[in-house]
Amino acid sequence: MAAISPPASQTSAFDRARHWLRDSRIPPVYGILVIIFLVSIVLDLVFGIDDQLYIFNRTIMTNVLVRSVALGIVAVGQTFVMIGASIDLSVAYLISLTAVGASFLMNGNPDNIWWSVLVLIGIGVVVGFVNGTLITRLKVNSLIATLGVGLIIKGLLNAAFDNFAGSVPASFQTFAYGSIGPMPISVLVLFLVVAVGWFILRRMRFGAHLYATGGSEEVARLSGLRTERILTMAHIICSTTAVLTGLFVVSRLRSGAPWVGTDGLYDLESIAATVIGGTTLSGGRGGVWGTLAGVLIFSLLDTTFNQIGINAYMKQILRGAIIILAVGFYTVRSMREAA
């Protein structure tokens, strides 16, 4: 291989592009995203039910982004806890709680919006705090702790509400349906959340400390970090994003029901999107931009499947296969790098 490699000065544009890509630290998941994008075009050309390519329809592409909002926001939070080598299965239930809580508290009255949002975020903080405390102080495995907290939320929620309760005022629905110019507000919020997430992780001390805690709890602790607080904080952030997602969902649905979170599969899908985005389950690695790509992959697939009219069950099969293949591609690739 080395024998016929060209001199360094004459590297092809392709090679230079490859090196640039490698140095730019763009998460490799964007490669998968581009591949799926191309495959979508081909599928749409071959099997599409519309005359034109949907990919070039601006409204539909915007819808792809809107589809990503709910999962995207909570997946950013999930990325935080997973960088901290934890996991949060309670988000789906918290989303339900927020959705129901928002429509119940606001009850159609625009005056109630602000304090309701604050109360709900407060609930999110408490849930995150309970999750974090269970995991860091009582040393309960994160999977079990958050599953348990999720069940508790589910139970209490279903006991109190079995139904759509109240509704959010029309002005609150601007969150989901309004737009600034061609850009829906919800998509801007998603990008804002991702950007803030990136900023916290990559520019703030808390982010550096979270990576350290996830990389090695012991090392972080011995370096004088209060790892319990850091991880608890990550859980609080995660729960807060779940509240945000809940608010988005309810503003879209106008009214929340106790099953909106679990029906949306936000728990497992946010984990899957995060992992596809390159954040490892073992912690200490990854980032929110990768997660965003993971979420976009899901919504792109959804839209493509809709456009080519694929059977819902076949869709499930394909989605499962893509999760495995994407993550498999990743790990195999990193193994080759390591070798």
């Binding site: 039910i49 819808n63 809107v66 709910a70 909106v260 949306g264």
Partner: peptide, 27 residues
């Protein structure tokens, strides 16, 4: 001529997106 079926898989959120997609498609 064409019958376009979009399945929301029991998910409100998805059905809203689906309807938006269908309307946006303009077909």
């Amino acid at each position: 001529e064409k019958f376009i079926h979009v399945d929301a898989e029991g998910n409100d959120e998805k059905q809203i997106s689906d309807i938006q997609d269908l309307v946006a498609g303009g077909n």
